[in-house]
């Protein structure tokens, strides 16, 4: 078969860490089909960011500068990705907001089948099949794509970020293609960034998450524990909808999918949609007043009680135990 093209995601002039999950996928997939992988760094400031991914074993790092728009607009990125991807068997990105927006549109340009948000790649007789969660993670489909070029996004929590492998991939500049039809009808206005000193949910080793039970006391109650544990804050849909926590913190089937070493669930009942986003966590701790809450069915350690007394005790206990 052929080779694999990774589409890297940029933020603030650097390749985002999430891209390294797609590198992990590409190493396995390339070995299985006897090919190599290249990394395409695309966006504003692509050339400057390329150095961040030359040490991961790519045959080449390609850079494409997109100057026809500000920020990320799919119609300005997809034509260039698709043009380059024509020479590959698989085009892959990590299933972030960026990958999930861009890759299906690239697939459409290439008439490529698309396996979304996969949890594993399984080589079968020189071809690739893809394991992907469906029904909020309550069933897994083993998918086969029937097209010569295949489009894939990989779930960040299931593909551990690749470690550098040494060496230095050669960097090549590629020309940007003109934007898609219809691009003249779309304009990037602004990016309202949620600034936080804490780690990103998808990168964090520890997550301190709260549900409706936390009410509007997210920062005052859970913030100190998050800081003590160098953790990210997470939230349920209910608490985001109620405005108790920013939407960006939502963990769940259609929010962030996370798998940290340690996940604290405070005042979270454990709706199916929330469990779908966190049940891959290594250790789950649940504190809830309701002993029947479904969260206890997935928690390694459950404490029935009031989170507002448990959290300060936990902070004191952890400080004393260290």
């Amino acid at each position: 078969m052929g080779n694999i093209l990774i589409v890297a995601e940029l933020a603030e002039g650097k390749v985002r860490k999430g891209t390294l999950s797609a590198v992990t996928f590409a190493r396995t997939a390339a070995a299985a089909i006897g090919g190599t992988f290249d990394i395409l760094v695309i966006g504003q400031g692509a050339a400057g960011a390329a150095a961040g991914v030359t040490g991961f074993g790519a045959a080449k790092v390609l850079t494409a500068e997109i100057s026809s728009c500000k920020g990320y607009v799919c119609e300005h990125f997809a034509p260039t990705v698709a043009e380059i991807a024509k020479g590959y068997s698989v085009v892959v990105a990590t299933a972030t907001g960026f990958g999930k927006d861009l890759i299906p549109r690239v697939a459409a340009k290439l008439d490529a089948g698309y396996a979304a948000d996969i949890s594993a790649v399984i080589p079968e007789g020189g071809a690739l099949t893809y394991r992907r969660p469906m029904f909020a993670g309550n069933a897994y489909g083993i998918a086969k794509l029937t097209t010569p070029i295949q489009a894939v996004t990989v779930r960040q929590s299931e593909f551990t970020a690749a470690e550098p492998s040494g060496g230095s991939s050669p960097v090549e500049t590629v020309a940007a293609q003109p934007p898609s039809a219809g691009a003249d009808r779309i304009e990037f206005l602004s990016f309202d960034q949620v600034k936080s000193a804490r780690p990103e949910l998808t990168d964090a080793r520890v997550i301190v998450s709260g549900g409706r039970g936390v009410k509007d006391k997210f920062e005052s109650t859970l913030g100190p524990l998050a800081d003590l544990m160098s953790a990210a804050l997470g939230a349920t849909r209910a608490s985001c909808d109620a405005g108790f926590a920013p939407a960006d913190l939502q963990v769940g089937q259609t929010g962030k999918i996370v798998a940290p070493d340690l996940y604290f669930a405070f005042g979270i009942s454990g709706a199916i949609q929330h469990l779908a986003g966190m049940k891959g966590s290594k250790v789950i701790v649940a504190v809830n007043k309701d002993p029947e809450a479904p969260i206890f069915q997935v928690a390694d350690y459950g404490l029935v009680g009031d989170l507002f007394t448990a959290v300060p005790e936990l902070i004191a206990g952890i400080k004393a135990a260290r």
Partner: peptide, 20 residues
Amino acid sequence: LRIQYPRFEPPKGRAAGKKV
């Protein structure tokens, strides 16, 4: 069809832990 599912698998169950 561009995608086919020759087979499906159930998720690995996660055993409930203990109450402290």
